[in-house]
């Protein structure tokens, strides 16, 4: 093959496979948990508290009561997240965020760090996880801090 063509072909392949691969961190599920953090920089709980309120990121408040009194209208679809840090380890919280369907295939809870195997996603969200790997870590740190009833 012509060298230039070969480069173009390689680039095209990279672009085609690129978005999903680039944005979804690799992880391993061990006994109902993802024990290893998805990134090298530790999660920031204050940032996590901001992220879970973000309307553009499918706020958890759609479905969960949370200890965030300044926000109105907490949903009632899922259990209250008050004290959730005492009920689960960070690794268990990480899996519940990244892909709760691994625990309960029938769950109503969305997977916040998954881009593939989804059906008819709106163009602008295609191949984009709701949370980046770092956002997952920030939210895990926030949830882990909710260790009191």
């Amino acid at each position: 093959m012509d060298k230039r063509l070969a480069i173009v072909a390689a680039l095209a392949a990279l672009l085609a496979a690129g978005p999903a691969l680039a944005q979804i961190a690799a992880y391993e599920i061990v006994e109902g948990a993802i024990p290893q953090p998805l990134t090298d920089s530790p999660g920031n709980p204050a940032r996590g508290r901001q992220i879970v309120r973000d309307l553009d990121k499918a706020t958890c408040l759609i479905c969960h009561p949370m200890p965030i009194p300044e926000e109105p209208n907490h949903g009632q679809i899922g259990p209250s997240l008050t004290g959730v840090g005492a009920r689960y380890t960070p690794g268990e919280l990480r899996l519940r965020l990244v892909d709760p369907k691994a625990l309960n295939p029938d769950t109503v809870m969305p997977s916040y760090h998954r881009g593939e195997d989804l059906y008819r996603v709106l163009d602008r969200f295609e191949n984009k996880p709701i949370y980046s790997a770092q956002e997952v870590e920030d939210v895990v740190a926030y949830l882990a801090s909710l260790d009191r009833q």
Binding site: A58, K101, P110, L118, Y119, R120, K128
Partner: peptide, 9 residues
Amino acid sequence: ETRRGQLDL
């Protein structure tokens, strides 16, 4: 009955 969208519901 088909799950759809980024929220997959």
